[in-house]
């Protein structure tokens, strides 16, 4: 994974068939990047549902969250609708896994993103990361602690 203190690589990815998100869209805000293996798999389901309940808590910490997997934008759209998700899922689809690779969060053998978390500060600097075993929901306590630390230093 990228070292703490390094500048996060830019990206521009689709979340829905007609909407793109880039790192710059979030400048001025802390940003949580949640790489995860796949839409529809059970552990991811719990993880995204949990984050979906936490959007207000993240907002309180001046943070936004995006999920990133290699699923396509139509798949993400269907998944977001089915789970009633209120944060964007980005499609690291073409070239496959390029953003995950840039963040050192790609499992070459499986051809899927790792289950990896990043917290970037408002200037796009990596302030915290965590690599979870693929089948374990990493929860959100680490994210909240990282955000608190960032906001305390201001």
């Amino acid at each position: 994974m990228l070292p703490i203190g390094s500048a996060a690589p830019d990206f521009r990815l689709y979340s829905t068939p007609d909407q793109q998100h880039s790192l710059k869209d979030y400048s001025g805000k802390n940003l949580i990047l949640a790489f995860y293996p796949a839409d529809w798999s059970p552990v991811c389901g719990d993880q995204v549902s949990l984050y979906n309940e936490m959007l207000q808590l993240f907002r309180k910490e001046n943070a936004a969250i995006v999920g990133i997997s290699v699923d396509g934008r139509w798949c993400h759209q269907a998944y977001m609708q089915s789970r009633n998700l209120h944060f964007p899922l980005l499609a690291d689809f073409e070239p496959k896994g390029a953003v995950a690779k840039a963040y050192g969060a790609y499992d070459e053998k499986e051809g899927l993103c790792e289950r990896a978390l990043y917290v970037l500060d408002a200037g796009g600097i990596v302030r915290w990361h965590y690599l979870s075993p693929p089948s374990v929901n990493p929860g959100a306590d680490g994210i909240l602690n990282a955000l608190r630390k960032i906001n305390a230093k201001k």
């Binding site: 719990d46 949990l50 808590l57 929901n137 990493p138 959100a140 306590d141 909240l144």
Partner: peptide
């Protein structure tokens, strides 16, 4: 309660 859970490492 929910927030205390998240901070305590509850994820489901």
């Amino acid at each position: 309660d929910f927030e205390s859970g998240v901070r305590s490492g509850v994820n489901g």
